[in-house]
Nucleic acid binder design. Structure first.
Lengths: 239, 239
DNA sequence: TTGTGAAATTGGTAAAACCAATTTTATGGA
DNA sequence: TCCATAAAATTGGTTTTACCAATTTCACAA
């Protein structure tokens, strides 16, 4: 059995997009400059105009260029400033271990911040999230399946308390990572009612610490909770 | 002067992509299912096939669908599992304040973790990053301009010490956010040699704490450093 | 000098045609 | 009857041509 070599079978528009990206990286054009017209690019690249348009749309979607009707295609950013993002949709994403580890660190801190500035309304919302999670469990609903999931709601609402859009966005991303196939496969073997009930208990402890404004306790409770989750995950992912 | 209303002037392919995304969200199709053929979609939507293709490419790039030549377009993920990402390329990004605040929290923790597991080789790399930053300053180079920037190198290499791809990715994203226009405009007024030299000093203090394996000191030093940066930024962004 | 408007340029969209890969169906032999 | 094989239909991949709409350019007139 031969080790199959990765075949050069990219769709044309991707090849064109990659080629233009490469030219951008090499400094062929500078920020704000105008790219050649679509017709001109098509001629130079030896492909048709629709193909060029597809490639330009790809570049536009990642924020590299800006298309102005009737005016032209303009460089909006250099390749360095783009990339990254936990969920690219093309790979299988980060390892579950790294993900949960990052959650311990980051969500722990967030819980501490939240405890320092919680309002009564936000407190009520957290309680509702816990109750939603309980009713989910009663009805045997699948876990970690969507943004309506009670577990996610609880954690994302804590992040929202910080009023910091960046921290909220990061928590969203961490959860998006957990909804990926690799993670879900593990979760399916772990979503036992007893684990879910344990999580609800943990949530109540966290809520209590946040409610009384005890940052240190909230942080510790969040970390314990996620370390517990990590323990369950690792136990089942190894067998 | 009238307040101009946001005009419905999205390019056609975006309207189509949004419409399909909406249908996905409503559960019109389920995971793994096949979408109607491009020709069929074009007919149903009342647009041409190239337009449908452009929309499909957009959906493909965000990971919602997978296109298989000759077979069809398949649902790869539901809209919930995608979204987010600090840098979307379409808005002007998070506020500088949120960004630096998130850095204080997250990079502080990361510095603490790094102190617990640094190797001599990694230590050497950190030192090189500091020296690069010093030479950058001597030559009057622009700051926060690229991934080769000494400042960025220092912080990203600390994240690399954690061996956690998620934490590394998050730091990358935070810096990507700082390279956006809004932030750069502020930075241009702040990139005084004295500030840069102060940052180098801070870096040395952080390095020292990490070198001796003192997690608490490393965390504190990183936070102080970034709080200092925040102070400078706020002072200048208000005037 | 300044303003106006026509012409040229550029992106936006549509239609038709053909190629290539895949899937489905039909066919014929075992 | 069953299965392998080939033909046909389906589907995405790409090109060409054409025309529309927004923007820019520039000559020309006031």
């Amino acid at each position: 059995m031969l080790e199959l070599k990765e075949v050069e079978n990219l769709r044309l528009y991707r090849q064109v997009a990659d080629q233009i990206t490469e030219l951008l990286r090499k400094g062929r054009w500078s920020l704000g400059e105008r790219l050649p017209a679509e017709r001109e690019l098509a001629k130079q690249l030896g492909v048709s105009r629709p193909t060029v348009r597809e490639a330009v749309i790809a570049l536009e979607l990642v924020g590299l260029v800006e298309v102005r009707t009737g005016a032209g295609i303009y460089i909006k950013a250099l390749p360095d400033a783009v990339d990254s993002g936990l969920v690219t949709g093309n790979d299988q994403g980060p390892s579950p271990f790294d993900l949960i580890e990052a959650r311990i660190v980051i969500e722990g801190e967030i819980a501490g911040i939240a405890a320092a500035s919680i309002s009564s309304e936000e407190l009520e919302n957290l309680l509702l999230a816990i109750e939603k999670m309980e009713s989910d469990i009663e009805q045997g609903n699948q876990h970690v399946s969507s943004r309506e999931d009670g577990d996610f709601l609880f954690h994302s609402r804590i992040a929202a308390i910080t009023k910091n859009s960046v921290l909220q966005s990061i928590v969203e991303q961490l959860w998006a990572g957990m909804r990926r196939p690799l993670f879900r496969a593990i979760c399916e073997r772990v979503s036992l009612p007893q684990n879910a009930r344990r999580a609800v208990k943990d949530h109540r402890v966290i809520l209590e610490a946040i409610a009384v404004g005890n940052s240190e306790a909230a942080k510790a409770a969040m970390r314990r909770h996620l370390e517990q989750v990590r323990g369950v995950l690792m136990q089942y992912s190894g067998e």
